[in-house]
């Protein structure tokens, strides 16, 4: 029974081993942190996009909600940063619950409505009349609790959690029923799947991962502004990474992020426009020729992708 989890767990263990060892050889911790961040976000997005087909263009809304949820808990309620991160995750889930009605919309409508929701949330958080709670547009300062190592390992924990979630969905009946809904909603509900409930659970899990990631990011960065944690780039990068890797598997989003984010770091940072041009073209090519990502090449060759 548990045996079918082995390939997924193998991938997860390999990633964890690398991320535990690497800081001892490679001094740019910040790069590793951001890599973990995008790995976790890619898996989080995979939960909703890969298993239900809903493309959350406003995924960054959960990320920002997590960062702000944690920051408010830490600065106003004086909670320790570690529990602050969990509160950040919960804050994102609360936003997710508010947005559940959006799941009534399909395809591109959902994507745009979700994008609008994340922008609306951004403008609310950044509004100067909420300065007492969110600091408005003037930014959060967590430098008094700054702890690079603790937040690094917290982020690693969030990543492991996200990967385990996807491994579970990849190999469990819950994941299967979601895929059935994605394939044909009517047939699935006739077969006894509670469509609304299953979808909503996936949605909230996905939000939870993004919220935890945002909270850990806020802690690690220590000083941030609403524009930092609600930047559409976060959604865009995550979506491109996931599309490139391939959805619905544990390994696909990981591979996509590892390749593209490393490329971004080594090419993109010195010449960002080239990178933007490159991933723009990459998206076009993927959609036209490889809509299911890199993982689908292997799957076509009958190779099992965990």
């Amino acid at each position: 029974m548990l045996r079918r989890y082995f390939p997924s767990l193998g991938v997860i263990l390999a990633i964890v081993a690398i991320l535990l060892c690497l800081p001892h050889f490679y001094s740019n911790q910040s790069f590793l942190f951001n890599m973990m961040l995008y790995l976790a976000l890619a898996e989080g997005l995979n939960i909703i996009y890969g298993f239900t087909g809903y493309l959350p263009f406003g995924y960054v809304g959960f990320f920002g909600a997590g960062a702000y949820g944690a920051a408010i808990a830490i600065t106003l309620l004086h909670i320790s940063p570690f529990f602050g991160v969990i509160i950040g995750g919960i804050a994102a889930v609360l936003i997710g619950i508010i947005l559940i009605p959006l799941l009534r919309l399909s395809g591109a409508y959902f994507a745009i409505a979700n994008l609008a929701a994340s922008q609306a949330l951004y403008f609310v958080v950044a509004n100067p009349s909420l300065e007492k709670i969110t600091q408005g547009p003037y930014g959060i300062d967590l430098s008094s609790v700054y702890n690079a190592d603790a937040s690094y390992y917290t982020m690693l924990g969030v990543l492991v959690f996200a990967m385990l979630l996807v491994a579970y969905m990849r190999n469990s009946n819950f994941g299967l029923s979601l895929l059935a809904i994605k394939e044909d909603q009517v047939t699935a509900s006739l077969a006894g799947v509670n469509v609304v409930k299953a979808r909503s659970i996936a949605w909230m899990l996905s939000a939870f991962v993004a919220g935890l990631s945002g909270a850990a990011f806020g802690w690690y960065t220590a000083v941030f502004y609403p524009s930092t944690v609600f930047s559409l780039d976060v959604s865009v990068f995550t979506i491109v990474f996931v599309l490139f890797g391939g959805i619905g598997t544990v390994a696909g989003p990981l591979v996509g992020t590892l390749i593209l984010y490393s490329m971004y770091n080594f090419i993109g940072i010195s010449t960002p426009q080239y990178f933007q041009l490159f991933y723009g073209l990459l998206i076009i090519v993927l959609v036209l020729f490889l809509p299911d990502g890199v993982a689908s090449i292997l799957q076509k060759g009958k190779v099992y992708v965990p």
């Binding site: 001094s27 740019n28 910040s30 790069f31 951001n34 930092t228 780039d233 940072i269 010195s270 960002p272």
Partner: peptide, 20 residues
């Protein structure tokens, strides 16, 4: 390094300047 006006990128690059 070029941070493209993004604080997240800037944070990473400042770190790189100091630690690497």
């Amino acid at each position: 390094y070029d941070d493209q006006s993004k604080t997240a990128t800037a944070g990473m690059l400042y770190n790189q300047l100091i630690t690497r």
